[in-house]
């Protein structure tokens, strides 16, 4: 399983891998927002956390469709399906590697983009923390969509459409935890705890559902 983790990491860092593209997309999405809403620093500071979260959500959806499609195209998926290791575990490890290659760089990049949004230190810290806790959930949800769409020729867009509605709770609690951290009366912990609960919940449900979908997608 460790072998699988490092192989997937290597693949995403090698030429043609998606690790760098995700961060680049994140930066691009976030940096076009001020062109749309205008360069008012106070406004940007107020909506900055939400923009970062939406940007991270879209960026982490970007490479998800390749999660199983690449394996299917070269036949590796067949071998993984045959293997006696629980398929759930294989899917979980693949998700973990995918998150480490695409989700983690987003978390690392978020403080710099936070500066662009004129957010203060507390808001940047809170955004980074909630992204760290919340982006794995998006990957796990996305694994289900990727598994369902694995056999489709143009699965990429479909995965985004399937996954976005399911990822809305993550967005809601991620953003509300950030706002709770910067606006005094609201407590930070309850929404943050719910966010972590969502991540843990999907860390279990996501691989199970994805494994089931993969088993039935074989033909």
């Amino acid at each position: 399983m460790i072998a699988l983790f490092f192989r997937d990491l290597k693949l995403s860092v090698r030429a043609g891998g998606g690790a760098m593209i995700g961060v680049l997309f994140f930066m691009t999405v976030v940096s076009v927002i001020p062109f749309g809403v205008g360069p008012d620093l106070n406004l940007l500071a107020r909506i900055g956390a939400a923009i970062l979260w939406i940007g991270a959500l879209l960026a982490s959806l970007l490479g998800l469709d390749r999660l199983f499609q690449g394996e299917r195209e070269d036949g590796s998926l067949d071998l993984m399906l045959m293997h006696e290791t629980p398929l759930v575990l294989t899917v979980f490890v693949k998700c973990a590697a995918h998150w480490a290659a695409t989700g983690l760089p987003l978390v690392v990049a978020s403080p710099f983009l936070g500066l662009f949004m004129n957010m203060d230190e507390l808001a940047i810290g809170a955004t980074m923390l909630t992204l760290l806790a919340g982006t794995p959930a998006i990957t796990f949800i996305g694994a289900v969509g990727a598994a369902v769409a694995v056999a489709l020729p143009r699965g990429g867009l479909l995965v985004s459409i399937l996954v976005l509605p399911l990822a809305i709770p993550v967005l809601i609690f991620g953003v509300s935890a950030v706002y709770a951290a910067i606006e005094d009366p609201a407590p930070f912990l309850p929404p943050f705890m719910i966010l972590m609960a969502i991540t843990l919940f999907f860390a279990v449900i996501g691989p199970v559902a994805a494994a089931a979908a993969l088993r039935h997608s074989a033909d």
Binding site: K10, G16, E73, S76, D78, M82
Partner: peptide, 18 residues
């Protein structure tokens, strides 16, 4: 028996990048 089997299909199950 699949747990004791190698399966070599039409595709090679190898990654070009590695």
């Amino acid at each position: 028996p699949r747990e004791l089997s190698h399966y070599l299909g039409h595709r090679n199950a190898m990654k070009r990048e590695l």
